[in-house]
Simulated assay, not measured.
Amino acid sequence: MNNNNLGTKPHYLILDGLRGVAAIIVVFFHLAEPLASSRFVNVVNHGYLAVDFFFLLSGYVIGYAYDDRWEKLTIGGFLRRRFERLHPLVIGGMTLGALTFYFTDSAIWPLIHTVPVWKLVVVTLIGYTLLPIPLSMDIRGWQEMHPLNSVGWSLFFEYIANILYALGLRKLSSKALAGFVALAAVVLVHYAVTNPNGDVAGGWTLNAQHLRVGITRTIFPFFAGLLLSRLARPTFIKHAFVWCSLLVAIVLFMPRIGGETHLWLNGLYESFCIIFIFPLIVYLGASGVVHTKTEAKICQLLGDLSYPLYMTHYVLVYFYVAWVSNHKGNTLGQAWPYALLTFGGAIVLAYMSLKWYDEPVRAWLRRKMN
Rank of each mutant, 00 (worst) to 15 (best):
N4I: 05
H11V: 13
I14T: 11
D16Y: 02
V21A: 10
A32N: 14
P34T: 02
S38H: 04
R39P: 11
V44A: 09
G47K: 01
G47E: 06
L49C: 03
L49W: 04
F55V: 03
S58T: 04
A65W: 04
A65Y: 01
Y66H: 03
Y66A: 02
R69Q: 13
W70Y: 01
G76W: 00
G76A: 10
G77T: 00
F78R: 01
L79R: 01
R82C: 01
R82D: 00
E84V: 15
R85Q: 05
P88G: 00
I91H: 04
I91T: 09
I91E: 06
G92N: 07
L99D: 06
F103T: 14
T104R: 14
D105R: 15
I108G: 13
W109R: 11
W109S: 09
I112R: 11
H113K: 14
L120E: 10
V122P: 04
L125G: 09
I126P: 11
L130W: 01
L130N: 11
I133H: 10
P134R: 02
S136E: 12
D138L: 07
W142C: 13
P147Q: 07
L148V: 03
G152H: 15
G152Q: 15
S154K: 06
L155A: 01
F156T: 11
I163E: 03
A166P: 06
A166K: 03
L167S: 11
K175M: 10
A178Y: 06
G179D: 05
G179A: 08
F180K: 06
L188A: 05
V189E: 11
T194I: 08
N195H: 02
N197M: 13
G198P: 05
D199A: 10
V200L: 15
T205K: 15
N207R: 10
H210T: 06
G214P: 08
I215H: 08
T218Q: 09
P221T: 04
P221H: 04
P221N: 03
F222R: 03
A224R: 01
S229N: 03
R230Q: 07
A232H: 15
A232Q: 10
P234E: 08
T235R: 15
K238G: 11
H239A: 14
A240I: 05
V242D: 12
C244E: 10
V251W: 02
R256Q: 08
G258E: 05
G258V: 00
W264G: 08
G267E: 03
G267S: 07
Y269M: 12
E270F: 07
I274Q: 06
I275P: 05
F278A: 07
F278M: 13
F278H: 09
F278W: 10
P279G: 00
L280Q: 09
V282H: 06
G285P: 00
T292G: 07
T294F: 15
A296V: 01
K297D: 13
I298E: 02
C299S: 08
L301M: 14
L301R: 12
G303W: 02
L309S: 07
Y310F: 13
Y310T: 00
Y314R: 03
L316A: 02
V317R: 07
W323E: 02
W323F: 09
V324M: 01
V324Y: 01
V324P: 00
K328P: 10
N330R: 15
L332E: 13
G333M: 10
W336R: 03
A339K: 01
L341T: 12
A346E: 07
A346D: 08
I347H: 06
Y351H: 13
M352V: 15
P360Q: 00
V361A: 06
R362H: 02
W364Q: 14
R366T: 06
R367I: 08
N370C: 10
